[in-house]
Design a protein around this nucleic acid. Structure first.
Lengths: 264, 264
DNA sequence: ACCTGTGAACATCTTCACAGCT
DNA sequence: AGCTGTGAAGATGTTCACAGGT
């Protein structure tokens, strides 16, 4: 089985912690809003509130960038916008291709926040010949056959995969072979990539499952005692372990089972 | 400004670490694939490869759920699928509403992985009267006016916000007031919610910016020395700090600036 | 012989609390 | 007086390495 790492190589780049990098866009967004309202300076407390984090964390984050604040005063909004933009590499233009122009791909192509902030949709690519030439978000969709040429002609280094899961790995390999080194993956699959290629994944169904986990907790706070009673019953309902030599009673889960139908 | 926490309350629920919870869906997906191929058992090594993590982490994760493996053998696929599903709360049915049926909302409504795994789209809601009644993904879109009634009638506790940023906070408040306690937010805004409500955020532009950061690093590895030289020039190009009393020379960023145009 | 389950070491992230500058 | 910048403490997450069960 082809394995290879996935996700960021924990490169810890030049000393800025990954967790901080992940929050910089948040700060930038809050700062941009302040900038549009012509607010000249902002305190860590105010900015943190706007970004939805606490102020100690924000100050620590900024301390990795340098000393951009003024004690007793706060941060200069315009200056911080510039510094964070630069740190994130948004002072340059990033051509991006979107592969897979289904519902989601089209939504991404139309997404305004895409075009702003240094990103530019260089091409929309789809495997369906019927799509070729059709305009989406004011751009003609191009066929997968031309993927390599498009990447090279436009100097694309960031690719967005919005194909069905089955096609994602293959598309990924073609993107990488053509020179793409950063991939944003919307397909519900684990992508294998060579070292040096970054993959970030956006997965609706994972997010929902995490919410469901917490939701279940909220509901089941007082029902905990009952569950223990239900355990014996539940064990009988557990799907028969095929070819396993283990009695259900052997399993020692930390809490009670709940009899229920299992979704496919 | 209304603030309030955002994101998970770090509830650390019942002892399962948040990081582990976030990976369970990944394992579940890999296990489901194995299950479909009728693979009876799997080792931590194999499963970890399929899920894109390392095996020590996977074993540690599973150890929080209980002792579900067999030494010398591995894990029973069906049994694990069941246990993880149960742990995530997927053995019950979660009605979900999607608010904001634009490009993205429609894409989400059509997304297959949504319907499977215990989630059921109970309603599509949009503020545009022209949308009302129009079928999307085989369901009629309903008007925002009926939001509260829809939530209550269907016992919805999970809401998906796919509206423009400007509408998100208000929609969020209505959802919460009507009884929703988990929100998946696709709008590029920080949502304020009362305690006890979970918010998870999916943000395309943040993901791209994180990729750009790493991408920039890859490109600028050897250019580091040049940057120092460029510093004086760059400082002149920095946007004039409005109303600030600080000379540019005061700023002590940890590395050199690069002269560049800044995107809006 | 093989593979899980887990203590212990290590790494990263968050929060506290306050020194130091304006 | 007010607010930043940061060491130090604490919490969380990851990896190692091996004891212990099959």
């Amino acid at each position: 089985m082809a394995t290879g790492r996935t996700h960021r190589p924990a490169t810890r780049s030049r000393g800025i912690p990954e967790a901080t990098v992940a929050r910089l866009p948040l700060y930038l967004r809050a700062l941009t809003a302040l900038s549009e309202r012509s607010v000249p300076t902002v305190s860590s407390e105010e900015l943190a509130a706007a970004a939805g984090v606490n102020s100690a964390k924000l100050r620590k984050d900024f301390s990795y960038l340098g000393s951009y604040g003024t004690r007793g005063v706060g941060y200069d909004v315009e200056y911080l916008v510039y510094q964070i933009s630069r740190e994130l590499g948004l002072t340059q233009d990033w051509p991006v291709v979107i592969v897979g122009i289904g519902n989601l791909g089209a939504a991404l192509a139309n997404y305004g926040g895409f075009a702003s902030r240094g990103f530019r949709v260089a091409a929309l690519i789809d495997a369906d010949p019927a799509m070729a030439g059709k305009p989406v978000a004011g751009m003609p969709v191009q066929h997968t056959d031309d993927l390599e040429k498009i990447i090279e002609d436009n100097g694309v280094s960031i690719g967005v995969i919005a194909t069905p899961a089955g096609a994602a790995q293959q598309v990924c390999e073609r993107l990488v072979a053509a020179g793409v080194t950063s991939i944003l993956n919307f397909a519900p699959t684990v992508l294998s990539v060579p070292d040096g290629v970054d993959v970030r994944k956006v997965d609706l169904s994972i997010e929902l499952q995490i919410l469901a986990f917490h939701e279940q907790r909220k509901a089941g706070e007082e029902a905990a005692a009952d569950a223990v009673v239900a355990e014996a019953v539940a064990d009988a309902a557990v799907p028969p372990a095929p070819g396993a030599r283990t009695e259900a009673a052997d399993r020692k889960g930390p809490d009670g089972d709940v009899p229920a139908v299992m979704p496919a």
